[in-house]
Design a protein around this nucleic acid. Structure first.
Length: 601
DNA sequence: GTCACTCGGATATTCACT
DNA sequence: AGTGAATATCCGAGTGAC
């Protein structure tokens, strides 16, 4: 029996069935959309009998054609498949259809309507041009074409681009004159992070971090940038000799950061704990800090992030060692590594343990025992119906090709078996459970938004394991600066660890997420929560006033919104550039402000 | 080389509500 | 019928494991 961890006495039992007043779109949509199919199923003896007798022998009757059309195959494809298949039976017919689908051999495209293809190709090439055009402009691509009317005015064009760069940097909190100088130094083609690097180098030139800014100009940033953004080279900003964590010097080579296999971080609960690390002086708290991001970021991103965060080696952990769903993330933090303890109760680590009722329906040919990464989108009802029909029209077990198709979709969309031949996405409350949140934590917002927020959140048990060392260090509670808080994964983790939060300053852009955190806070906490919408308003002056008011931060914690980093974002994956660049540097800027202000006071 | 996996987004379409 | 919200669909990359 699985137990929720919740503050409600009456909610300690996980129910597979959703609550009565929940809409259950995932189930009903499929069912309601196919009432005719459903009633037909009642009339037939059962899937295996029907397959054995064979619609195949009956020939391509209108009803059987429609049946496959309802499965999502184009009518022409069905007719062609039936013609090609002859009397070989339903099973091979489905195989044939799936093959057509897999290889894109759609007769409806090949034969008649070629008109659909040409505009498609034209659009594609247009997109490419636009994308290549955009790519050189890290940071501004969301701001619209402010300079696209001056095509024949190169000078104005250049000046406008320079202004945009400066404006971006000012928005990030830099003084305008320094931003302008940096753009002059590095060229307006330099990416935001290079500019950031340059400004920061100037600001800290006298602090023993590293030398002067002319050094910077040796790196050919100022020239016209021809390479891809990922090829921009970042410099090592902090002293090499003192770090000792990496042998290679200079940071000229963007060496990829190898991911550990298995991805267990520095240690796991009940595992060997022989890890020792010495942190560079600048990295040692107070405050403690904890930065999270996707492990599978584009090449060079982690190297750069690590370099900015005091050369601390990331701790890469897959949450599949903590719960029944994978979640590969990297964490850079300066927390002690010894005396970690896992949250109780220990969550189930297999699907069957987490959702026992799925076991009854789980086919032997589906080897999954854990879910893949829970993402922000879920499968459509139509896909579920296609899968159901593909299976009900197959024997048991289904042929290899059907198995492969179904398994691929199940893995891709994290589908669970909830009935005979019936798969469905996890409900939001089931995702809450897997991620370690209290039941109904995100309830009250739209289903889509729940999925989006949950897909972006921490896995609480994983993060709590790392944070558990703070419990004995702060018996009287902590002051926390929480950046990009989302639905409050960090706060929930600290709460479940029994750590009191005296003051939490939380920065979160999304209003629904702020509401979720506030609502949870009011139910569970006695401390003070201050929610900030826009990270840009958290200037060093603001930070200082907060620090003066509450006496300093004990922990700066933040996950990085990864919309440009995740592997699943195939179109706009631009590494540590553009919007993500700004977000990471806000994290870094704020952390650095907190450190220097606290040192000064 | 193949394969699996990935904290997504713009746009078209449908749905729910007034 | 009009509106905004929710949903469906297309898109097809980069990386590491093998």
């Amino acid at each position: 029996m699985v137990h929720w961890v919740s503050d409600n006495e009456d909610s300690d039992k996980f129910e597979w069935d959703s609550d009565d007043d929940d809409e259950e779109v995932g189930f009903n949509a499929a069912g309601a959309g196919s009432s005719a199919l459903a009633s037909r199923n009642i009339d037939v003896p059962g899937p295996s009998t029907r397959v054995a007798n064979g619609y195949g022998k009956a020939g391509p009757s209108a009803s059987s054609v429609q049946e496959y059309v309802a499965m999502g195959f184009p009518e022409e494809m069905v007719l062609k498949a039936m013609k090609d298949n002859g009397d070989d039976g339903v099973e091979s017919l489905v195989e044939l259809l799936l093959t057509y689908k897999a290889i894109g051999n759609d007769p409806s495209v090949n034969n008649g309507s070629t008109s659909g293809c040409a505009p498609q190709a034209a659009e594609d090439s247009d997109d490419d041009i636009l994308e290549n055009w955009d790519t050189d402009d890290a940071g501004e691509r969301n701001k619209g074409p402010a300079f696209d009317e001056s095509g024949d005015e190169d000078f104005l064009h250049e000046m406008s681009r320079k202004d945009e760069k400066v404006e971006s940097l000012v928005k990030m909190g830099f003084p305008e004159d320094e931003a302008a100088m940096a753009v002059t130094r590095c060229g307006q083609d330099a990416s935001i992070d290079v500019l950031f690097d340059s400004i920061y180098a100037s600001q800290t030139a006298g602090d023993g971090y590293y030398g002067n800014s002319s050094d910077h100009e040796d790196n050919s940033y100022g020239g016209r940038k021809k390479g891809r953004p990922g090829n921009t080279r970042k410099r090592k900003r902090f002293g090499d000799e003192a770090q000792g964590s990496r042998g290679s010097l200079g940071g000229i080579n963007d060496e990829p950061m190898p991911l550990p296999n298995p991805m267990i971080g520095f240690n796991l609960p009940n595992g060997p704990t022989s890890v020792y690390r010495s942190l560079p002086g600048q990295a040692i708290g107070p405050p403690y800090f904890y930065y999270e991001n996707v492990a599978l970021a584009p090449k060079g991103v982690w190297t750069t992030i690590s370099r900015f965060l005091y050369d601390i080696q990331p701790e890469f952990v897959d949450s599949k060692f903590f719960c029944a769903a994978a979640r590969k993330r990297g964490y850079i933090h300066n927390l002690p590594l010894v005396n970690r303890s896992a949250l109780r109760p220990i969550p189930p680590k297999t699907i069957f343990e987490a959702f026992p009722r799925t076991k009854k329906w789980w086919p032997s040919w589906d080897p999954r025992r854990q879910f893949n990464c829970l993402q922000t989108c879920v499968a459509s009802a139509k896909l579920l119906e296609r899968i159901r029909l593909a299976l009900t029209n197959s024997e048991d077990p289904p042929p290899q090709r059907v198995q492969k198709y179904v398994l691929e979709e199940c893995r891709k969309w994290n589908l669970a078996w909830v009935g005979l031949n019936k798969v469905a996405p996890l409900e939001p409350d089931e995702m809450e459970f897997l991620l370690g949140f209290p039941k109904d934590h995100t309830r009250g917002i739209s289903r889509t938004e729940r999925y989006r927020s949950l897909g972006n959140s921490f896995q609480v048990d994983t993060v709590a394991y790392h944070l558990s060392v703070l419990r004995d260090m702060f018996p009287h509670g902590m002051n926390v600066l929480s950046l990009f808080s989302g639905i409050g994964g960090a706060e929930v983790a600290l709460h479940r660890l029994g750590i009191r939060m005296n003051n939490v300053i939380s920065v979160e852009k999304s209003e629904v997420n702020r509401t979720i955190l506030k609502s949870w806070w009011d139910q569970t906490q006695t401390g003070t929560l201050i929610e900030i919408t826009d990270v840009q308003t958290l200037t060093s002056e603001k930070i200082e006033s907060y620090i003066r008011r509450i006496g300093g931060f004990d922990l700066v914690i933040g996950g990085s919104p990864c919309n440009n980093l995740a592997g699943s974002n195939r179109h706009h994956r631009d590494g540590l550039e553009g919007e993500h660049s700004a977000l990471f540097y806000h994290y870094f800027r704020i952390l650095d402000s907190v450190k220097s202000i606290m040192e000064r006071l």
